[in-house]
Design a protein around this nucleic acid. Structure first.
Lengths: 349, 349
DNA sequence: CCCGCCCTGTTAATTGATTAACGCGACCCT
DNA sequence: AGGGTCGCGTTAATCAATTAACAGGGCGGG
């Protein structure tokens, strides 16, 4: 018996039909206890590990796992506190449902041209999942569209025409930051946002459509909150990492017309900006004001003024949308809250 | 056409055999460019997302994903620096191979009796993977055995009779710690190890067999390194977390016969012990010596004497063992290095 | 005594693809 | 003209299970 045993093998060895073996593993109530015991015993003797997962999935149409799309390198994602908090919430739920979690890389390295996109979509197309979470992606993202074509249940964290979503009101959050800064007298603000551009480069108005959807909304809110007459320059931070944040922050701080405040799109970026500021002898909240986003644990330590969002709860709700059949809402909006700490203060130039 | 389209649908609509459609998606060289273009066009019109992932997996026997078994809650794992570093290395490789990563919960909550084990094994049995990584688990762990029965390629991080492995020499690492402490004059040491027991309780010699395999080996090495005549008490830390570490550390520090040194099984536990020590007014490296394990980034900040192991490289190698067909070795032993910092110092009682 | 139901068990259709083997013209070479 | 090869397609077996529908024996009730 060199071959891997199958249901058929076991059925033949036990002298019953394959249906009986299947029932023995899946529906104890459909056969007598005696024959179930016998079948399981024969299975053990043949070292049969139970029904093949792939075949069962094909037949039942269920896989028992949900996916998460990652548009940045996975090995980087594991160092991002926002992502980790979201995943922690998500896995609380998947675990309760005994579901696996599939991390799907969508890594369009380099130019991002048609072929590269096509290639990296393979992982999305081949992923064995019952549904997926696309955090921070827009409806028109190729990975999202590929999933939609597969007709898989999808949960997003930005407003979507078709998919269910768990959101925050990004525009309002941006407005909270804008109003706070305006109240402190800031009229010249740099927004540091993750984007495809090189860290430290300016994002022109026409390119703002290319930003992540949440960045666009926060920008709109920020401008609104600052009111008319304020200047808002948008600076690309490349990816959302410490290193990129330092480059972007440095370029803003070294500009001849340095803004009085810097609103970063995440606490990770904001913390990097803070470090660069201190490095230049600038006192946060005095010489320059800095705000973040998310309120990850490190923000409190850094004295960072930031917008708190319930990240873990977001993950939990996304998970429930996918797995809990009694969860009906197709859109949940979570509250945000401006947390004022020492990194912001009155403007003076 | 309310149903999800299949290969057959598309073949019929395009007026070709299903084989052609399959080739159009998988083997462009097996058909003329014209008919390939035609088929893909028809597929698009019918909103066909490409061959069904499950069916393809059944037929080809390949899934395109590898699994990682977690014996602690996933949402907790995301806060453990060792796990994150290992995953970062692992995903570097899976990403290169466009493979998904499936996080498989094996969460035997509560008593851990037969039924609960059986139940939580379901996720392991049903996981759609081509192979798996079992970090820190022993050959006789139920989840490992379930995977072995499925005849899936398996990579472990402890010595295994059957599976391939990427290891460190845990016994030698323990010995390094032991010798270091002996050199400082410590003759009474507490080893704080993760285990199933309640944090803070003593682990009796007979129960040591129940510990994680790496803990056992390190203990053996530690005793050997300390040499004859030294006392080593083993204290359970429950799970490998800050909270558990504080409980375990507190109980050791409050014991009437407090040891002069505490060797923790991870930097996370050691950092917790350090905090408890400081909290009691004990100066690390002076009033009490503490060692960790892993050398995660936080260890340097905490001034922790610890054993460095190349965690990320471990993850990378595990991934290559699973995915890189040119990687032949079935056992790799990585080097460790004792990093002496300020948390250890001469013993005096 | 007969009808119908329950309990166990079997038959066989189905899930959606992959791919080896083979068929059939057209073309080339000698 | 005969035979070999090449390009392009089709046929049909196979992957390993699930499950609706059905069959027959035993048994209780009328």
């Amino acid at each position: 018996m060199p071959d891997r045993p199958t249901l058929k093998t076991v059925a033949a060895a036990a002298g019953v039909s394959t249906a009986q073996v299947s029932y023995a593993f899946n529906r104890p109530d459909r056969l007598s206890a005696a024959s179930r015991a016998h079948i399981l015993e024969v299975a053990r003797q043949h070292d049969y590990a139970g029904p093949d997962a792939t075949a069962r999935s094909l037949r039942t149409g269920r896989v028992g796992a949900v996916g998460v799309i990652f548009t940045v390198g996975l090995s980087y994602a594991f160092s991002d506190p926002y992502t980790l908090a979201m995943l922690a919430g998500l896995t609380e739920v998947t675990e309760r449902y005994c579901a696996g979690l599939v991390l799907i890389p969508f890594d369009v390295g380099g130019t991002g041209d048609g072929d590269a996109v096509h290639e990296s979509l393979d992982a999305v197309r081949r992923a064995l999942i019952d549904g997926a979470v696309a955090d921070g992606l827009a409806d028109d993202h190729p990975a999202v569209q590929a999933l939609a074509r597969r007709r898989l249940p999808l949960v997003m964290s930005s407003a979507s025409a078709s998919a269910r979503s768990v959101l925050i009101d990004d525009e309002e959050a941006g407005r909270q930051v804008g109003r706070h800064l305006r109240g402190l007298g800031h009229r010249d603000v740099a927004a540091v946002v993750a984007s495809r551009g090189e860290p430290g480069t300016l994002v022109h108005e026409v390119d703002e459509a290319e930003l992540f959807p949440y960045s666009r909304l926060r920008l709109t809110g920020l401008r609104d909150g600052l009111g008319p007459g304020a200047r808002v320059r948008v600076v690309s931070a490349g990816r959302n990492s410490e290193a990129s944040g330092r480059v972007a922050g440095g370029s803003v701080l070294d500009a001849p017309d340095r803004p009085t405040a810097i609103a970063a799109d995440s606490d990770v970026l904001a913390a990097a900006v803070l470090r660069e500021a201190r490095h230049r002898g600038l006192r946060p909240g005095v010489d320059v004001s800095v705000t973040g986003f998310d309120d990850v644990p490190a923000a409190a330590d850094a004295g960072l003024t930031t917008v708190r969002q319930p990240i873990r709860e977001k993950g939990r709700l996304m998970g429930r949308m996918l797995l809990d059949p009694t969860f009906e809402e197709s859109r949940v909006i979570l509250p945000t809250e401006l947390v004022v700490r020492s990194s912001t203060g009155p403007a003076h130039d």
